[in-house]
Design a protein around this nucleic acid. Structure first.
Lengths: 116, 116
DNA sequence: CCAGAACATTGATGGATGTCGATATCAGAG
DNA sequence: CTCTGATATCGACATCCATCAATGTTCTGG
């Protein structure tokens, strides 16, 4: 993360116009590319999927480590990327950190990709 | 391109189930991640956008090089990635190579990201 | 057949990124 | 307060990737 660290939690939907329609500016392209790059990793896609499918649509790091087959530090790293990109929220309760999907975040990116 | 070169032109829609709904398999995650990685670059997003906005929804390399501010070989490289990922088609007429959007390709990926 | 134009491919290179192990932080139990 | 467990952060490393310059390929015109 180089670009993402410079930005606050972002909402791409608010900044970009649809992919098709008219030629995209460099700024919009960089912004949308960042959002897509956060999704473009198998581990992160599975994390999103597992969080969504988990009881109460919420999961902590310990729920994810073993099924993913990755180290705790690696899972934590991916979660940070997804939170920074605005796809997940983090809420700490006790020693545990619970992650949850941000409603509409995925749909927002999907809408930008949809033709017309 | 390491993974992509091993695969034929792909249609992610036919291979993956939606991101949310139930836990995603490793294979599906790898496949969808490849499709998203092909999009997760500013230059490639702009290429798609410019092709869609161009006259007759078609563009050749020479139409893209100058507005993108990239070398011809770089543009050609990006176009190959987009063709391999199934977002663009290439048709050569004379010395020129014309690129066109694959209908429904973007919408297919967008549908996989859309919740429910 | 030859020269030039449009594009593809190759090789090199600097920078980004996924992964791990080790360490730091921080809350709760005793 | 100290110890333990759950996470986050850091440093290191190997790999991947975007870009360019140079070269190869293929078509057109003369």
């Amino acid at each position: 993360m180089t670009l993402m660290e410079l930005l606050p939690v972002r909402d791409v939907t608010a900044c970009c116009s649809p992919l098709t329609g008219e030629a995209m500016s460099q700024d919009n392209a960089v912004s949308l590319a960042s959002s897509l790059r956060a999704l473009a990793d198998p581990a992160r896609l599975r994390i999103i999927s597992m969080v969504a499918a988990h009881d109460d649509a919420e999961a902590c790091v310990c729920d994810l480590t073993e099924p993913l087959g990755l180290q705790q530090s690696t899972v934590s790293h991916h979660l940070k990327i997804l939170v920074d990109a605005g796809y997940l929220t983090r809420s700490k309760r006790g020693t545990w950190a619970y992650y949850r999907l941000v409603p509409g975040a995925l749909d927002g990116v999907a809408a930008l990709l949809t033709t017309v």
